[in-house]
Amino acid sequence: MLFGKPATAEKWITEAVENSYYRTRAEDGGFVFLTTVAITERDGIMTLTSAHDSQPQGFAARLMSIPMGLLFKGVARNAILQDLNDIKAAVERV
Protein backbone atom coordinates (compact mmCIF):
# COMPACT_ATOMS: atom_id res chain seq x y z
CA MET A 1 0.00 0.00 0.00
CA LEU A 2 1.19 3.50 -0.85
CA PHE A 3 -0.89 6.52 0.11
CA GLY A 4 -3.79 4.18 0.90
CA LYS A 5 -3.82 2.60 -2.56
CA PRO A 6 -2.44 -0.78 -3.69
CA ALA A 7 1.17 -0.26 -4.79
CA THR A 8 1.24 -2.64 -7.72
CA ALA A 9 2.15 -2.18 -11.34
CA GLU A 10 2.17 -4.66 -14.19
CA LYS A 11 5.75 -5.42 -15.30
CA TRP A 12 7.07 -6.94 -18.45
CA ILE A 13 10.49 -8.39 -19.21
CA THR A 14 12.32 -6.29 -21.79
CA GLU A 15 15.57 -8.24 -21.98
CA ALA A 16 16.96 -11.47 -20.54
CA VAL A 17 20.10 -13.55 -20.73
CA GLU A 18 19.72 -17.06 -19.33
CA ASN A 19 21.68 -17.64 -16.11
CA SER A 20 22.85 -14.02 -16.14
CA TYR A 21 20.23 -11.25 -15.81
CA TYR A 22 16.83 -9.93 -16.76
CA ARG A 23 15.40 -6.42 -17.12
CA THR A 24 11.83 -5.32 -16.51
CA ARG A 25 9.77 -2.23 -17.21
CA ALA A 26 6.58 -1.02 -15.58
CA GLU A 27 4.57 2.16 -16.07
CA ASP A 28 2.22 3.67 -13.53
CA GLY A 29 1.09 7.09 -12.35
CA GLY A 30 3.27 9.03 -14.78
CA PHE A 31 6.41 7.06 -13.96
CA VAL A 32 8.48 4.45 -15.78
CA PHE A 33 10.08 1.90 -13.46
CA LEU A 34 13.12 0.02 -14.77
CA THR A 35 14.69 -2.91 -12.91
CA THR A 36 17.67 -5.15 -13.62
CA VAL A 37 18.20 -8.36 -11.64
CA ALA A 38 21.48 -10.22 -12.16
CA ILE A 39 23.07 -13.33 -10.72
CA THR A 40 26.82 -13.91 -10.72
CA GLU A 41 29.11 -16.63 -9.38
CA ARG A 42 32.64 -16.22 -8.13
CA ASP A 43 34.64 -18.78 -6.19
CA GLY A 44 31.50 -20.82 -5.58
CA ILE A 45 29.58 -17.87 -4.10
CA MET A 46 26.39 -16.78 -5.83
CA THR A 47 25.47 -13.10 -5.72
CA LEU A 48 22.08 -11.66 -6.64
CA THR A 49 22.03 -7.95 -7.45
CA SER A 50 19.10 -5.71 -8.22
CA ALA A 51 19.09 -2.16 -9.59
CA HIS A 52 16.03 0.07 -9.80
CA ASP A 53 15.38 3.35 -11.63
CA SER A 54 12.19 5.42 -11.40
CA GLN A 55 11.79 7.95 -14.20
CA PRO A 56 9.07 10.61 -13.91
CA GLN A 57 7.35 11.37 -17.22
CA GLY A 58 6.05 14.91 -17.47
CA PHE A 59 5.85 17.94 -15.20
CA ALA A 60 3.28 16.58 -12.71
CA ALA A 61 5.25 13.38 -12.17
CA ARG A 62 8.44 15.39 -11.62
CA LEU A 63 6.70 17.43 -8.93
CA MET A 64 5.35 14.26 -7.31
CA SER A 65 8.81 12.68 -7.35
CA ILE A 66 10.25 15.24 -4.92
CA PRO A 67 8.39 14.11 -1.77
CA MET A 68 8.01 10.55 -3.07
CA GLY A 69 11.77 10.16 -3.20
CA LEU A 70 11.93 10.43 0.56
CA LEU A 71 8.83 8.37 1.31
CA PHE A 72 9.35 5.72 -1.35
CA LYS A 73 12.88 4.77 -0.28
CA GLY A 74 11.61 3.02 2.85
CA VAL A 75 8.70 1.35 1.04
CA ALA A 76 10.94 0.18 -1.80
CA ARG A 77 13.64 -1.04 0.58
CA ASN A 78 11.10 -3.13 2.50
CA ALA A 79 9.61 -4.57 -0.70
CA ILE A 80 13.05 -5.44 -2.08
CA LEU A 81 14.12 -7.06 1.20
CA GLN A 82 10.94 -9.14 1.21
CA ASP A 83 11.58 -10.22 -2.39
CA LEU A 84 15.15 -11.22 -1.52
CA ASN A 85 14.00 -13.13 1.57
CA ASP A 86 11.41 -14.96 -0.56
CA ILE A 87 14.08 -15.84 -3.15
CA LYS A 88 16.47 -17.01 -0.43
CA ALA A 89 13.79 -19.22 1.15
CA ALA A 90 12.91 -20.76 -2.23
CA VAL A 91 16.55 -21.45 -3.09
CA GLU A 92 17.25 -23.01 0.31
CA ARG A 93 14.30 -25.41 -0.14
CA VAL A 94 15.85 -26.88 -3.30
Results as ranks from 00 to 15, higher is better:
Y22Q: 04
D83P: 10
G4H: 00
P56Q: 06
A26L: 00
A38I: 14
V37N: 12
E27G: 03
I45N: 15
E18M: 11
L48Y: 09
E18R: 11
G69C: 00
A76L: 05
E27D: 03
A38Y: 08
G29E: 02
L34E: 11
N78W: 01
E41R: 14
T47R: 07
Q82I: 08
G44R: 04
T47L: 09
T40E: 09
G58P: 01
S50M: 11
T35F: 05
K73F: 12
R77L: 09
Y22K: 08
L70Q: 05
D28P: 05
A61Q: 03
S54H: 07
F31G: 02
P6A: 05
Y21F: 15
D28Y: 12
K11A: 04
I39P: 10
D43L: 08
E18W: 11
K5D: 08
A16C: 13
K11C: 08
T8N: 01
A61V: 01
D53T: 04
L48V: 13
P6R: 01
R42F: 13
Y22N: 05
A60C: 00
D53E: 07
E18Y: 06
F59T: 02
A79Q: 12
T14V: 08
D43V: 00
M64I: 06
T49G: 13
Q57T: 03
A60M: 01
G74I: 04
Q55W: 03
G44A: 09
G29D: 09
V17C: 11
F31W: 01
S50H: 11
L63G: 05
M46Y: 10
E15T: 10
V32E: 05
G4E: 08
E27W: 02
T8L: 05
K73T: 15
I39K: 13
H52G: 06
T24D: 15
G29S: 10
H52P: 01
R62L: 06
V37E: 13
L81W: 09
P67Q: 00
E41P: 12
A38H: 12
A26P: 04
T8R: 10
D83E: 11
T36G: 11
T35K: 01
K11S: 02
G69R: 07
L2I: 07
T40M: 14
T47V: 14
D43M: 00
I39G: 13
N78V: 09
L84R: 12
G30Y: 04
L71I: 00
R25Q: 07
